[in-house]
Design a protein around this nucleic acid. Structure first.
Lengths: 335, 335
DNA sequence: TTGAAAGCGCTAACAC
DNA sequence: GTGTTAGCGCTTTCAA
């Protein structure tokens, strides 16, 4: 292992100067800097992070905690966060909590001392615990907020109201009047917002009616399970809690001879890459999740590196976009 | 921050005993242990990893390097690795190299000093560089090997020959005679093995013929792009490089009125979760990827913790399983 | 602009 | 079984 001592010896300076060359280059004369840098290059020196962390009290690592890395939604967020933290010179520890609040809680506890900050995505923790974490560490929330309980906690949110409205507007524009919303897990943060958004959007447009299904498991299997229940009542267009549920509906309907979009139109939420996997392609509304991941890292690092001055915007609300694909079409006029 | 000193003071022992209580509990009397543990609990003490790392020369962190975390294949591997490393008390740094050899190379270099070991998944590095990494650090390869160049490097591989054979056997059993294989990126490790496997399996069964497409982009879009080219020549069954390509074929065919499995049967490789997203469900052959991720972690940690004795099996070859779903059916007898 | 030196929190000899 | 002590490699006063 190459240490500051090796570099110092090689370049004829003290170890302090080696350290300065890397940390505060402007405090080193151009000449010395060049020699030190040359020695570093020649020896392949890399500062030992553990030592630097111990001394500085900062690790250069941030944690990104997701419920399920296999879920395309979280995978995309992670991808964005990864890129952003790399660009800023930080390491990123990705933690998959397997949808368990206990695992999440335990992992956070174990992590706390060895990271500079933590990004909690769709946290499964109850408010009190989440509050504790948020106050106890530099943190950013994605898809969750503490509202009045902790207005100081930065968060990245997607404007679900706008998303719901865009989806409903699209369907209404195609002539659909009887809509159905297949909702996700009751009490989930996104579900509450999406359901409300859809309801409001429907209410705002005279002539529309809405049927609602609640508490559907937010996976393709969940969608399949309720594929039957959604049909009927003259519904001509369905909004699904997420793309996975939409794909489940699509698949099951396909097997039962219900055609999309000829017989029924379908819109998913999130616009994840799976929306481009199906036939027909799925119309979906969502934001660029990589951007969201990046935004969270930016917000977090602003905090982490805030020594003084900075008084950054603590919230970031991302606008979703509706991407129209083949799963939606004008309502069939009565034959 | 609570340190060993605080715990020592609180429990009336020296800092060495506090450390021992955690690291080598059997070298501490039961009585003392209880008192120390109580103090740790009361104070909420957590050892500072940076300090421990610096002192021990081990960080308790391993790296898991994947080309693309959004790819379901890698996501599942990651999930398994995550679970295994958590269970063993290690942290896991997940690195997404965005399919770039340069990024991979640079990240590995940056990481090297601060991890105990590294798992390289489907590395994009050329042999020489990979060799350098493998020899320079405790490492395990997934989906890649150095063969004679570095027979000592542990690796986890999926038996692609068995996978190909199972797929071909399945189709042959259904009466298909004219098969096509839609290959992935030329020179890719998996592609070479799968292509050879398919060829051998076909050759071993008199009466079968094989058409091959090469160098298809291994995504749904790639599959779509060649959906047309595959058809014709009397082909009644297609094997696709991976599930994503298969889904692309499926979607594009669907839009052109080619029905699966009525008109043509389709088998994917990998058996990722997307195989359950389509309609019809995709028949696919693959191993449990979470198991593979876990296996890699086990192999790696055996090495990391090998102080003496251990002379572990350095290779792990996983057997794939063919999961028959609705995308394959008996060949239609001439109408 | 540079160097000397202290010490971050912990572990592992070593001594008792 | 327990305590004392010497650093791990680095950053950062403080003095020159």
């Amino acid at each position: 292992m190459v240490t500051v001592h090796d570099v110092a010896a090689r370049s004829g300076v003290s170890i302090a100067t080696v350290s300065r060359t890397l940390r505060v280059p402007h405090r080193v004369s151009g000449d010395t800097r060049d020699r030190v840098l040359a020695a570093i290059e020649e020896l392949g020196y890399r500062p030992n992070r553990a030592a630097a962390s111990l001394r500085r009290g900062r690790t250069g690592v941030i944690a990104f905690v997701v419920p399920d890395i296999e879920n395309p939604y979280f995978a995309s967020l992670t991808k964005g966060a990864q890129a952003a933290s790399r660009a800023r010179g930080y390491g990123l520890v990705v933690v998959d909590t397997t949808e368990s609040a206990e695992v999440e809680s335990e992992e956070i506890r174990a992590l706390r001392s060895q990271i500079d900050g933590i990004i909690l995505v769709s946290s499964r923790l109850p408010d009190e615990q989440l509050l504790e974490v948020a106050e106890g560490a530099v943190s950013v929330l994605i898809n969750r907020d503490l509202g009045d309980r902790s207005p100081a906690t930065p968060s990245v949110a997607i404007d679900e109201t706008a998303a719901s409205d865009a989806a409903v507007a699209h369907l209404a524009g195609l002539g659909h009047r009887r809509l159905a919303y297949v909702g996700g897990p009751a009490h989930s943060w996104s579900q509450e917002r999406r359901a409300r958004g859809v309801r409001d959007a429907v209410a705002a447009r005279p002539g529309l009616t809405l049927a609602e299904l609640a508490d559907v498991v937010p996976t393709a299997a969940g969608g399949r399970a309720v594929a039957d229940a959604v049909l009927g009542g003259g519904v001509t267009a369905v909004l699904a809690y997420n793309d996975l549920v939409a794909l489940g509906l699509l698949a099951e309907w396909g097997e039962r001879g219900v055609r999309v979009p000829e017989d029924i139109s379908l819109v998913g939420f999130d616009n994840t890459f799976v929306a481009e996997l199906s036939s027909p392609l799925l119309t979906s509304v969502g934001t660029d999740l990589r951007d969201a991941g990046e935004a969270a890292v930016e917000l977090l690092l602003q905090r982490v590196e805030a020594t003084d001055s900075d008084a950054p915007a603590a919230y970031r609300t991302l606008r979703p976009e509706l991407v129209v694909r083949a799963s939606t079409a004008p309502v069939r006029t009565a034959d």
